[in-house]
Amino acid sequence: MHDYQKLLALSLLAYGAQKNLPVEQLCQLSGIDLEEVKADGPMTSRQLDDLWINATHLSGDVLFGLHFGESLQIAALGVVGQLIRNSHTIGEALTQAATFTHLLTDALTMEVKRTNAGFAVQFIPNQTRQRAAPAMFCQLMDFMMAFLIHEVDGLVLTRIQPDQVTLPSQIADLTEYERVLRCPTIREGDKYELTFAGNYWNEPILLANYDLQTTLLQEVNGVERSYEAHQRMSDRIKSYLLANANLGLPSLDAIAGNFNLSPRSVQRKLQEEGLTYQQVADSVRKTLAIHFLESGRHPTKEVSYILGYNELSAFSRAFKRWTGTTPGGYQKNQRGIT
């Protein structure tokens, strides 16, 4: 596990202690040796997933992640938190946060988009991680949304609150979500998204130190290079493709350019993992196709277009190769239609 993920785990344990949770029992249930962790020992992603689930269970708080995100101080993120504190504006702070979200978790990515009316922050699930640990994922997503809103408290002379919150799942306690997320307009949709008025974007960070920001960027970018050096090329490509699915699936040359590598280098790294770019891209297409079809919000022809197929018949053949059934047959099975 990366150091920043471990920082997040330790902050979760500290929050649990504040809430009078039996921390030793929490660690035991999660397969964590507390003394070893205190002595800077390792922690795995599986242990962190279990930590979220067991903390929610022991606390009896179905909104544990939401409340944890509300309470966490930005300093708990170490140098990444300091970098956010020393950004020039809220817009820059959120952009920095989005850039380094993967250092905190591999379960999602964060994207910040400017719009005509303001800007939107969207959290994009890693479908594989979401399916593997849905209970953990829900808590983590609540945490990220609450933390994003509250992380800039004390850094600006205004109280940040979104115009609208969109969630793809049923809301357990609407009143509490409205309180923590500071938004009376919470609706169900097909994504996790917070939208904000444009005037927040250029709101200056009070404590910004531009010289320190340069130093922090060098340090975090060094961590980023180390992180990427140890990450499988196929995982890097999958994360990028899922995060930018709305742009279509790019060519190998475009992917290589995004990673500042030559196409041949990307191919070689994938070959070392026993894969080709086509196989990785097809895996992502399958994940996205199933997601779009299950959502029921897109006709099959539109899903085919989104995934880069010029002909619906080509998409249908590919989907049958992946799943053993046609897109239409898959949707009927999902609805229980025989």
Rank of each mutant, 00 (worst) to 15 (best):
L8H: 10
L10I: 12
S11D: 14
A14E: 14
Y15T: 06
A17W: 05
L21S: 04
P22S: 06
E24H: 11
E24P: 01
Q28I: 08
Q28E: 14
L29K: 15
S30G: 11
S30F: 09
D33S: 12
D33N: 15
E35N: 12
V37G: 05
V37Q: 05
V37N: 02
G41K: 10
L48S: 10
D50I: 09
W52Y: 15
N54H: 15
H57S: 14
S59Q: 07
G65F: 07
H67W: 12
H67F: 13
G69L: 04
G78T: 06
V80S: 06
Q82R: 11
S87E: 08
G91Y: 06
A93L: 08
L94T: 03
T95S: 14
Q96F: 10
Q96S: 10
A98W: 03
A98Q: 05
T99Y: 08
F100K: 01
T101W: 12
L103C: 07
L103N: 04
L104K: 03
A107G: 15
T109V: 07
M110H: 01
V112K: 07
R114V: 08
A117K: 10
G118Q: 04
A120W: 01
A120C: 08
V121I: 15
F123K: 03
F123E: 02
N126C: 11
R131C: 10
R131A: 15
P134T: 07
M136Q: 15
M136H: 15
C138V: 13
Q139P: 07
D142I: 04
D142E: 15
M144C: 14
M145P: 04
F147Y: 15
L148P: 01
E151L: 14
L157G: 14
T158V: 14
R159P: 01
R159C: 10
I160M: 15
Q161A: 12
L167G: 02
R179I: 02
P184E: 01
I186A: 01
G189Q: 00
D190Q: 00
Y192C: 02
L194E: 01
G198F: 01
Y200W: 13
W201R: 03
D211W: 00
T214Y: 00
L216Y: 05
L217I: 00
V220P: 02
G222M: 00
E224M: 10
E228M: 09
E228N: 12
H230Q: 13
R232L: 15
R232G: 13
S234Y: 01
D235L: 11
A243H: 10
L247R: 13
G248E: 05
P250E: 04
P250N: 06
S251G: 09
L252M: 09
D253S: 11
N258E: 07
N258I: 00
S265Q: 06
K269F: 03
L270Y: 05
Y277P: 00
S283D: 12
K286F: 05
L288M: 12
L288F: 03
S295L: 07
G296A: 03
H298E: 09
T300G: 13
L307I: 10
G308I: 07
Y309H: 11
N310S: 10
N310I: 00
L312Y: 10
S313E: 10
A314K: 08
A318F: 07
F319C: 05
R321D: 12
T323R: 11
T323Y: 04
T325P: 02
P327K: 06
K332H: 08
Q334M: 08
R335D: 04
